[in-house]
Simulated assay, not measured.
Amino acid sequence: MAVLASVINILGMVFLAHAVYSAYEHSLLPSSSVPQPPSAILPAALDLRVNLPLDITLETLFSAFLLCVGVVLSSPGLKPIQWNAWAGKLERSKEAREIPEVGVGGGNPYAGLEERPGFLDVRGRRKEFAQWIQQDAVGEKS
């Protein structure tokens, strides 16, 4: 498959180079320098002043199509996105736990989100408040 993709890419490049060269040569012809009458269909902003022959236009489109097909065929296969499998694999590996860039403590890629300084831990604050109330209640009874 890689050989076929390379051949298609090379053919697309050859056709594109030929189309560009043909367009350049056509622009140098004395008949192509004659201004074209404005189009009755297209607005003035979209009206092209260069009148390329149909074969050059089709060759350009064909070469672009070949290049697109060749690039798609030569690209590697897509891998499924499974963040939970990736994170679990990282947490279980010893090498990832030793790398500090993976997470805050290493190993857990989501640890940075859980241990960030600006993160308000509501459950932890609730427990602290309940302990403070219990200590206050014990202090009043004594």
Results as ranks from 00 to 15, higher is better:
residue 6 S to L: 04
residue 7 V to N: 07
residue 11 L to M: 07
residue 11 L to F: 07
residue 12 G to I: 04
residue 18 H to I: 15
residue 23 A to V: 07
residue 25 E to S: 07
residue 26 H to V: 14
residue 26 H to N: 13
residue 28 L to P: 03
residue 29 L to S: 15
residue 31 S to L: 09
residue 32 S to K: 07
residue 32 S to A: 08
residue 34 V to Q: 11
residue 35 P to S: 05
residue 37 P to V: 03
residue 37 P to E: 04
residue 41 I to M: 07
residue 46 L to D: 01
residue 46 L to N: 00
residue 47 D to Q: 03
residue 51 N to G: 11
residue 53 P to W: 00
residue 54 L to W: 15
residue 55 D to C: 14
residue 58 L to G: 05
residue 59 E to A: 11
residue 64 A to E: 15
residue 65 F to M: 06
residue 68 C to L: 12
residue 73 L to V: 05
residue 73 L to C: 03
residue 75 S to E: 08
residue 76 P to A: 09
residue 81 I to S: 12
residue 82 Q to S: 12
residue 85 A to Y: 06
residue 87 A to D: 02
residue 90 L to I: 04
residue 93 S to N: 09
residue 96 A to R: 01
residue 98 E to W: 07
residue 101 E to L: 11
residue 101 E to K: 01
residue 102 V to C: 00
residue 103 G to R: 00
residue 108 N to P: 05
residue 112 G to R: 05
residue 112 G to K: 03
residue 113 L to S: 06
residue 113 L to N: 04
residue 117 P to G: 00
residue 117 P to E: 13
residue 119 F to M: 09
residue 119 F to V: 13
residue 120 L to S: 14
residue 123 R to V: 04
residue 128 E to D: 13
residue 135 Q to L: 09
residue 137 A to E: 07
residue 139 G to C: 12
residue 139 G to P: 15
residue 140 E to L: 08
residue 140 E to K: 12
residue 142 S to I: 03
